[in-house]
Design a protein around this nucleic acid. Structure first.
Lengths: 229, 229
DNA sequence: CCGCCTTGTCACACTATTGTCACAAGAAGA
DNA sequence: TCTTCTTGTGACAATAGTGTGACAAGGCGG
């Protein structure tokens, strides 16, 4: 699961920062824009997954931006949450008509914001298609999150599971420890390369005699998952 | 496992036949319809397990049919896969909003079609809405809203009941806390993820020693209801 | 208004998992 | 064979993820 990117559009920097802080603590990537103009180019460049849009903006109103985004086919599916001052119920209607997916009245608690944000993201990102992978009697089923070796369920820790999943969907190719950290641990972690060795070891152990040869050491380079040995 | 019936709705006969051929080779029963009208009566008569629906249809568009099916409680549960010409990403969103469970862009390989089809069938509920569900002596009767374990009635709160019902009709699949909130609490609620844990705990407690192992924790992922442990 | 039940949240207890280290074992090259 | 890299292995302390009990707020029928 990759981190979602959220764009905050508000002309008041303190508010932006407050929101940005909450979001970053919850592991979202955050972009900020102080004007509709800036917002638009950020959207084109960075393709955020969601926009938090303030209703009151000096130049072009937030409403205008929302309309524009929804009209353009490229950005039409981008979910938008409108922020607005308390009690202005009319705005809510207008905002939703303009294509906003949800609406939050200021002042709001960070907690509420997060909850709504998740709800919107949840219902706009459809589930992926998860396919079962099978190699020589080794079966990985992402749907039930289960791995079995010749029918017998294996006990894998989360990291071992992800590692195996990556290998099974990227067979026959050598990956350096760095690449594995990138792919399995997810981009922005700082861990020792040798840690990979340890997890490889754990995975091999869990796979047992019957399948541990599938994970091969390529000396001086990295590791490879292959049926040929 | 009995053969699944798939209904193909497309106004172009050659395409229908191509798809039908692939499906029959994979042991599916196939129905064909050239119009939304025909499709509707076939659905009523033959109750297929899945509908492959073309987006572009002369009379009522495929989209319309999808909406109609999802609106009618009788057919609401019927999984739908939309077919559409390549690159029309807007359609994807509209299609998914209309209730389609998946979406395939033409031209597609038979292989891809089969994979998606299997995936959709796997994750859609094989159970009728009012059917009694039974697992290892654990019995849930949606009509009387009652749950019994080896004949003895259990006391479940409303939420625990819904949670259990969801699990029993969606076995063998891991659900994240988010997804459970979506499915059991209903789309637009804002509650803490950890609340799910508490309800899981309450449900397990209520199920007693005999059945609490059915609800399994998948560390780092979520929960799963399964008879295999 | 009262008592009863359900619910969401919190604080704390508990455990599996994780990253790292020190050392053992192998491979490659001279 | 000996030296020098590189990888395997077991142990361990810190941490992240779950289990668990308690509680206050809210709903609901009386």
């Amino acid at each position: 699961m990759t981190a979602k990117t959220v764009l905050i559009v508000d002309d008041e920097a303190p508010i932006r920062e407050m929101i940005a802080l909450s979001l970053e603590m919850a592991d979202y990537r955050v972009l900020e824009a102080g004007s509709a103009q800036a917002a638009h180019s950020l959207i084109v460049d960075h393709q955020p997954d969601l926009v938090l849009l303030d209703w009151m903006m000096p130049d072009t109103s937030g409403l205008e931006l929302a309309r524009r985004l929804k009209r353009d086919p490229v950005t039409a599916e981008l979910p938008i949450i409108m922020l607005t001052a308390k009690g202005e119920e009319d705005n809510k209607v207008q905002g939703l008509e303009a294509g906003a997916d949800d609406y939050i009245a200021k002042p709001f608690s960070p907690r509420e914001l997060m909850a709504r944000l998740k709800a919107v993201l949840r219902r706009t990102t459809p589930y992926g298609i998860d396919e079962v992978v099978e190699v020589n009697g080794l079966l990985l089923d992402p749907v039930s999150h289960r791995v079995s070796s010749n029918g017998k369920t294996l006990e894998l820790g989360p990291t071992e599971y992800r590692l195996l999943q990556f290998f099974m969907t990227h067979q026959e190719r050598v990956y350096t420890r760095d690449q594995l950290i990138d792919q399995v641990w997810g981009g922005n972690v700082y861990i020792d390369e040798r840690t990979v060795d340890v997890h490889i070891r754990r995975l091999r152990k869990a796979l047992g005699e019957s399948h541990q040869q599938l994970i091969q050491t390529v000396r001086g380079a990295g590791y490879r998952f292959s049926t040929k040995y």
